[in-house]
Amino acid sequence: MSGASALGVRARHRRRRLLGHRLRVGGGVFTCALFLFPVFWMVLTSFKQPKDIFTTPPTFFFTPTIETYVSYMGRADVLHRMLNTVIVAAGAGAVSLVAGAMAGYALARVPLRGAATIGAVIMLSRGVPPIALAVPMFLVARKLGLLDRHITLILAYCTFLIPYVMWLMRGFFKALPEELEEAAKLDGCSRFGAFFRIIVPISLPGLLSTLIFSVILAWEELLFALVLTNRVATTIPVAIAGIAGDSVNGANWGALTAVGTLTVVPVVAFALLVQKWLIKGLADGATKG
């Protein structure tokens, strides 16, 4: 093979790869735009007056109004509920992260007879229809005087978050080299010491990514929030359900999309901030599932 033709082949390869790369970027952006279109439509609708929302054909050009935002943000309970949602989502995320990560570590690294069985049972417990749990949980919470408290919702959300965290973190810990703990043991660390001082700091990206997913799931939960809270600890999804079910005037789609948009903003901001960690953490956590 002469040098010249080899060069030509390589150039062709590079051109083809560049084209492939451009196609990938274009395809990625296009798909993202496609997936975000309903979101765009939601945001657009939130700036419409009710009579501009259901027109034939649909309108892209209209006199925008921020009235819906103003009137809904002005209502004291929206801010109050937003705060509750933050407390509950953060609390449930934190509790399930600690408990779930430790369980995941036990499954991945701690020699323990019976742990695998318990882990399997925990995964299988996710099969319970949530509707079946809501009523008995209400009865228990009332018996203990825990209705309408943040802690009750946090515990209720843990039932579905812990198995999820455990499963993700198990894979993440399995991917870590075993020498880490051995070195820690030689340094005189106990198991707990090794876990909290060495494993946790290394796994921070993975832990954060799991936390974000847990927070998203707790953030939008409706059924338990409806049943277990009344006034003090009630969350944003309950408010949204209330606006949607307006049986007197008809659902106010301006308000619904406005509150819907408002609830998305904090989570997306949070995700943007930590997304580098997120991807890194997921990469390490998911590969050796």
């Binding site: 409806l226 006034r231 949607a244």
Partner: peptide
Amino acid sequence: KIDGVPYPELLAK
């Protein structure tokens, strides 16, 4: 004090 509940769950609640 009045607590509002979304219509679909009002009876059960």
